[in-house]
Structure formats: C-alpha cells, structure tokens
C-alpha cells in the first residue's frame, strides 16, 4: 500500500509538473469552451451552443488525459528505461498500472472541477433546464458510466501505442490521433454535420461514441443511445487487451 500510494503521488506530481500536459488537459478544453460559445463559427444546430460545447469539451478532456497524456508519458518512460528499471523493483506491473489509472482519474476530476463551473458561468443548463432531480441523477450516472468506459478505451489505446512505438513516434501519432478525433469525434463539430461517409466512420470510433453519450446525458436530456454504449464497450474491451498483449517494457 505504501508503494502504491507513493507511486500515485509521484505520478500525480510528474503529471501536474508537465506544463504541456496542463495545456493539453485543461488549457485547450477551457479555451475551446470559451471560444466556441462566444464566437459562433460552428453550426451546432442547437439553440444554446453552450449546451453542445460543455459535453463536447468534457469528452475532449477525457480523451486528452486518458489517451494523449497517459500514452505520451508512458512512451517516454519506456524510452528512458524507467519502466525497465521498475521491473527489477518490488513495485510490480499491477501496482504501476493501478497508480497510472488513479492519476488519470485524479486529473479528470481536476478537469471537471474547472470545466463544469466555467460551463455554468457561460449559461450551461443540463437538459435545457427542464429536468426533475430524478432525471438529473440518472443522467449524471449515465454520464459517469460513459466517462469510465471512455477512459478505459482511450487509456488502452494510449498504452497500446506507447507499448510498441518509439517515444518520439508515439508522441507524433498520439497528437495526430488527438487532432483527427477532436475534429471527427463530435467534440467541437457535431457528427451530423460531417460528410456522410466520414460521419459513418466517426460513429464507430470511440470519440464520437463518448461525445454522443455525454451530449445525450448532459446536453439534450435524452438517454444515451444504445449504439454509443456498444461502441464504447467494444473499444473498452479491445484496447486494454491489445495493450496487454503487445506492450514491450523496454
């Protein structure tokens, strides 16, 4: 337990110390939220753009932390020989992985603690403000479940890349994927506004499923569509498995 909590503290310390990580995980989502709700450049098709963008940037925040931040940091740790060195300590892989997961969740809580108040400040009303306390509770639980599945799916994806690619290449691929999924993942541009072919492809990717789920639960007040559950669950099952099978520790 002492080893685990020390590892969590070290991982959190290092994550929060990386300026580029904070920019990616907090800075960019906040900037997007402020920019797109003020400057109406994206046709969201809803009456209050903030209702679209709060769930959208929450989705972006989850993807940034679970896939990009975790993946890039782990890739460099592999490149620096840190993971190899840890292999000959009593820490062990389960505790190392556990500490990384806890750190991702902690960062996500920080992101939510920043983004949600900013959203409310911009006039965000979950479900357009016409919800009963009971439906808000249900929607929150659904949103939480979507977030957990997406964290697993994106975390697995980040680790799968980090486990096979050279650190620098991993950095480039993770950032490229981030950009593509940002644009084609329903985070700042509704998937419905994409060209038909691209939209169809986007719907089977985890990013659109995540933002669809959050849009439904937090935005328009509908239930999370079954399709989003299925896509997210499939990715959440597949990517950690691929990572576990292909990860090279040195």
């Amino acid at each position: 337990m002492r080893a685990f909590s020390a590892q969590v503290r070290a991982e959190t310390f290092m994550t929060l110390r990386r300026g580029e990580t904070l920019l990616l995980t907090v800075g960019i989502p906040v900037a997007f939220l402020l920019f797109f709700t003020t400057v109406h450049v994206v046709p969201t098709g809803v009456r209050h753009p903030v209702t679209f963008f709060v769930p959208g940037v929450l989705a972006l925040a989850i993807m940034s932390t679970a896939m990009v931040s975790l993946g890039i940091a782990t890739g460099f740790e592999r490149g620096y020989g840190v993971l190899k060195r840890l292999g000959s300590t009593p820490l062990g892989r389960p505790r190392l992985l556990g500490a990384k997961i806890v750190t991702v969740v902690l960062v996500e809580l920080v992101q939510a603690a920043v983004l949600v108040p900013v959203g409310y400040g911009l006039g965000f009303h979950p479900g357009g403000g016409s919800r009963t306390p009971g439906s808000i509770a249900t929607a929150s639980l659904e949103a939480l479940a979507v977030a957990v599945l997406a964290t697993v799916a994106f975390g697995g994806l980040g680790l799968a890349l980090a486990g096979v690619l050279r650190a620098e290449l991993n950095l480039a691929v993770a950032n490229g994927l981030y950009l593509v999924l940002l644009l084609a993942g329903g985070m700042v541009v509704p998937v419905g506004k994409l060209p038909a072919g691209l939209g169809a492809l986007a719907r089977v990717l985890p990013a659109a499923a995540l933002s669809d789920g959050l849009h439904a639960a937090l935005g328009n007040g509908a239930s999370v569509p079954l399709e989003a559950w299925v896509v997210l669950a499939a990715w959440a099952a597949a990517t950690p498995l691929v990572a576990a099978l292909t990860f090279r520790w040195e």
Partner: peptide
C-alpha cells in the same frame, strides 16, 4: 532508468517506499 523530472531525493524516497 530514472524519471527525468525527479531529483535524487524525490526518486530515492519513491524507491524506498517499494
């Protein structure tokens, strides 16, 4: 084999917890 951002005291404390 060492975290590049951690100094000797911090990394030794971390390892000592193992």
């Amino acid at each position: 084999g060492v975290y590049p951002v951690l100094g000797p005291r911090r990394v030794l404390r971390l390892f000592s917890a193992y």
